[in-house]
Design a protein around this nucleic acid. Structure first.
Length: 417
RNA sequence: CGGGGUUUAGCGCAGUUGGUCAGCGCGCUCGCUUUGGGAGCGAGAGGCCACAGGUUCGAAUCCUGUAACCCCGACCA
């Protein structure tokens, strides 16, 4: 993409009110636009990052047998009354509306009820199980207080997978699989070494649920981490008994702030019973399916990545989620150099490298260099009279600032293949 | 939902003892000059001072109400 064509502009100043690092950098870079508190639009660069994260999650969900669907945001009162979750006294994050005829509707904050009802049409026999269905869909939660930029929103994208198994044993096997898939996802988006499985409240069907908590000052949870065992406990459930049951010792634990980037949860028969999702087992007996739900918020993941990977000058995207791999700059107005830059732009695209080409030749060099720092692509390639004199292209690695003058061929061999 | 703060040009802000208080910086437009760290000079455009009432000869400025935003806390199937 050419920067001269990109409609978003970077800005030097945003409101002092905005204190979260992720919102500050993403808004300065023109990645997102704030519509209102906790409600953000994703602009071209931001959407590319979000889609990268989504793709990684999709690949991992497909790899463990997930089938992608897309459910509706509008939800009927009747369905949710059947599980006792319609009332505002039970669930206080509902956004509710109504049809012209007066029927109540809600905007989904999660989809257990919806998916379970769908499955009653498709699951009748033990031969139909297991089923793992997932979606990427906008969730609405009327939070009393949105905060931390895109990390806690009232409208946000969520990957939610729901598993339907014939019994607890089969469910547990899948639970292990998706646990591992989640670890691969966080590894791939660059959060691996900062993200820990954290034991949290499991509700009424299992002792614990498991959260994936990324160590991050902007996070909202307090966790106790045993670094050696790579296990953490959420403060919500922290007590002597829990410590013992996990074989952890208080003196090995470190108190840290964590951002919950994922959660896996056993639901048991709570929803399948309420909505009569029954199947016939091998003996012809009717049983309720055993369910689990598994969520990741791609937007929050993006926010956490920015929180973790930035410096005074801007964002430092991990390669796997960067909107472009290379930021190409031509700092000269010399025709031959511009031509050369154009050729590099085309050549890199031909071999499948995503390039952001700063072809705004009227802007001065400093301005454009600062933009490239702010936007944070992993590799910066500069063509200029200076680099030409030294015989090549200046390649700078964003994360460590190291520069060298090398040929295009070397750049491709060493960094882009 | 409790407490505190904020709202003035596209963005960031100053102005708030009522009367040269419609200002600054950035950005934007035009011209010339500039190109390795957000350029220089010159000439311009741009505001119902959040909204609604009120006090006053006169309100961005005082009073009342409303809304939105931010922070801290509570909450977070």
């Amino acid at each position: 993409m050419r920067l001269s064509q990109l409609f978003t502009k970077s800005s030097k100043d945003i409101s002092k009110d905005e204190v979260s690092k992720n919102a500050e950098l993403l808004m300065k870079g023109g990645y997102i636009f704030k519509e209102m508190a906790g409600v953000y639009s994703y602009l071209p660069l931001g959407l590319r990052v979000l889609q990268k994260i989504v793709s990684i999650i999709r690949e991992e969900m497909n790899a463990i047998g997930g089938q992608e669907i897309q459910m509706t945001t509008l939800q009927s009162k009747k369905l949710w009354e059947s599980t006792g979750r319609w009332s505002d006294d039970v669930v206080d994050v509902w956004f509710k509306s109504a049809l012209k005829n007066g029927s109540d509707l809600g905007l989904a904050f999660t989809h257990e009820e919806a998916i379970t009802r769908i499955m009653t049409q498709h699951i009748h026999s033990h031969k139909d199980l297991p089923v793992y269905a997932y979606q990427f869909q906008t969730k609405f939660r009327n939070e009393t207080r949105a905060k931390s930029g895109i990390m806690r929103c009232r409208e946000f994208l969520m990957k939610d997978l729901y598993s339907f198994s014939k019994d607890k044993k089969s469910h547990d096997e899948f639970y292990e699989k998706i646990w591992a898939a989640y670890q691969r996802i966080f590894e791939r988006v660059g959060l691996g070494e900062y993200t820990y499985v954290t034991f949290s409240s499991g509700g009424s069907f299992s002792k614990f649920s498991h959260e994936f908590q990324t160590i991050c000052d902007a996070g909202e949870d307090t966790i106790y981490l045993d670094r050696r065992k790579k296990i953490a406990i959420n403060k919500e459930v922290y007590n002597e008994e829990v410590l013992n049951s996990l074989g952890l010792k208080a003196e090995d634990l470190e108190e840290l702030r964590g951002a919950e980037v994922g959660n896996i949860f056993s639901l048991g028969e709570r929803f399948s019973s309420a909505l009569k999702l029954h199947y016939s087992d091998e003996n012809g007996e009717s049983k309720a399916a055993f369910m689990g739900s598994y969520g990741i918020g791609p937007g929050r993941v993006m926010g956490v990545i920015v929180e973790l990977f930035s410096d005074e000058a801007g964002i430092i995207w991990p390669e796997s989620v960067a909107p472009f791999k290379v930021h190409l700059l031509c700092l000269s107005k010399e025709k031959s150099l511009i031509e050369k830059a154009e050729n590099i732009y085309l050549e890199l695209q031909n071999i499948g490298v995503e390039v952001l080409f700063d072809d705004r030749f009227d802007l001065n060099a400093g301005h454009r260099l600062r933009d490239s720092d702010l936007l944070g692509m992993p590799y910066r390639m500069i063509l200029s009279d200076q680099s030409l004199k030294k015989g090549g292209i200046e390649l700078t690695v964003r994360k460590n600032g190291k520069s060298e003058i090398i040929s295009l061929k070397e750049v491709i061999e060493r960094y882009l293949s």
